[in-house]
Design a protein around this nucleic acid. Structure first.
Lengths: 81, 81
DNA sequence: TATGAAATTACGGTCTAGCGTAAATATCAT
DNA sequence: ATGATATTTACGCTAGACCGTAATTTCATA
């Protein structure tokens, strides 16, 4: 499962995959974040207008975190040890 | 340089470090993104209300991309090869 | 293919990001 | 110190996110 993303669409898709990998519905995320199901839907569908707070809340509910990496950069050995 | 982030503050700090590592000013980012300097400032200072489009534009200008990873998860061997 | 659950879309309302512009601080080199 | 550069903050404005609520469409499975 590739979770790299540089567009809102890719982020939304990654969120959706992570959610389904846990067997959760948008309603489950909604209950855990107090965000409306419509908001989760909008995020997963790649709305770039989504607020950072919304994305972070959903990611926290999914147990995810960001890693900011160089575009096209290989994984650095420092990232491992 | 640790670029992991799960809060707006950490994201802002990571952006600021990446910018300075390139020797750029907020004005440089502004020129490349058509975002106001004040907006870049707000983002770097951890405003969670920042729009995803803003963050993505700044990251693109810096040649960065996201990687969504499991919290506390180790680097998977699949991430390397 | 029926059918209940899940996801998307809609409408009025509040709140705020980001805009243009500009002033106020802060940072830094000489 | 001081002048130049960089960052932060302010004000009025417009656009749009997210809210509550609810209708509508899509999807999964019996």
């Amino acid at each position: 499962m590739d979770l790299s993303a540089r567009t809102a669409e890719q982020i939304g898709e990654a969120i959706r995959r992570a959610r389904k990998a846990r067997g959760w519905t948008q309603g489950d995320i909604s209950a855990r974040t107090n965000l409306r199901v419509a908001t989760i839907s909008s995020l997963e569908n790649g709305d770039a207008g989504t607020k950072l707070s919304t994305l972070l809340a959903v990611m926290a509910a999914l147990g995810l975190e960001f890693r900011l990496v160089e575009r096209g950069g290989a994984v650095e050995i420092e990232d491992i040890f």
